Computed example of a mutant assay.
Amino acid sequence: MSRIVIACYRPLPGKAAELEALMHTHLPTLKSEHLVTDRPSIMMKAADGTIIEVFEWISQAAIDAAHTNPAVLAMWEKYSACSEYVPAASIAETGQLFSNFAPFGR
């Protein structure tokens, strides 16, 4: 069964442009490794600059496989150099009944 996830990336100081550029490679990299479905991701930006992406893994096994996949690990290193992963609950907008964000990436 597929798994839909919410991933949140907060740019490190001075690294917002680098993170924004990297976001355009995320889903294509995962697709090239056959780890995600064909469902387009939804990307958005919080007021504090955090980028939120909602996307669909093929399965829990695909998520697990990502943790040993060289292409994914290399991509995750790039993410770590320009951002920190944060829980969705840490984003101020998620405290609203109807959270809304600025569109990003399209």
Results as ranks from 00 to 15, higher is better:
A65G: 09
D38L: 07
R3Q: 14
A66V: 01
I52T: 02
D38S: 12
I52W: 01
R106W: 02
L35C: 10
P11T: 06
M75I: 03
P11N: 14
N100D: 04
A92R: 10
L30D: 05
A17S: 11
L19C: 04
I58H: 09
D64R: 14
K45W: 02
S83I: 00
I6M: 15
A47R: 15
L22E: 03
F98L: 13
E33I: 00
R106N: 14
G49R: 07
L22Y: 01
D48Y: 04
I52V: 12
S41P: 06
Q60I: 00
Y79R: 03
I63N: 11
C8R: 01
L97M: 15
T25Y: 03
W57Q: 03
H34D: 07
K45I: 00
E93P: 00
T50K: 05
P103E: 11
L27T: 07
K78R: 12
S83D: 05
A62H: 02
W76S: 09
T29C: 13
E93W: 00
L35N: 05
G49I: 08
M44Q: 15
P103V: 00
H24L: 09
E84S: 05
T25P: 03
A81D: 06
A89T: 04
A88T: 04
I6Y: 03
P70G: 06
R106L: 08
N69T: 08
V54M: 13
E18A: 15
M23L: 06
S41G: 12
A71W: 02
P28F: 07
H24V: 00
F55G: 01
C82N: 07
E56Y: 09
S2M: 10
A7C: 05
I52Y: 01
E53S: 08
D64I: 04
P70L: 11
E33C: 08
E20G: 05
M43L: 14
T94Q: 13
L12S: 03
L22A: 13
A65F: 05
A17M: 09
R39N: 11
I52F: 02
S99Y: 02
S80F: 07
I4K: 12
V54T: 06
M43F: 06
R39K: 12
P70C: 08
R39Y: 04
A62W: 01
Y79N: 06
A71C: 09
E84N: 09
N100F: 07
E77N: 12
F98G: 02
H26Y: 04
S99K: 14
T37G: 07
T25G: 10
A81K: 14
H24Q: 14
R106H: 07
F104N: 07
K45A: 09
P40I: 04
C82A: 12
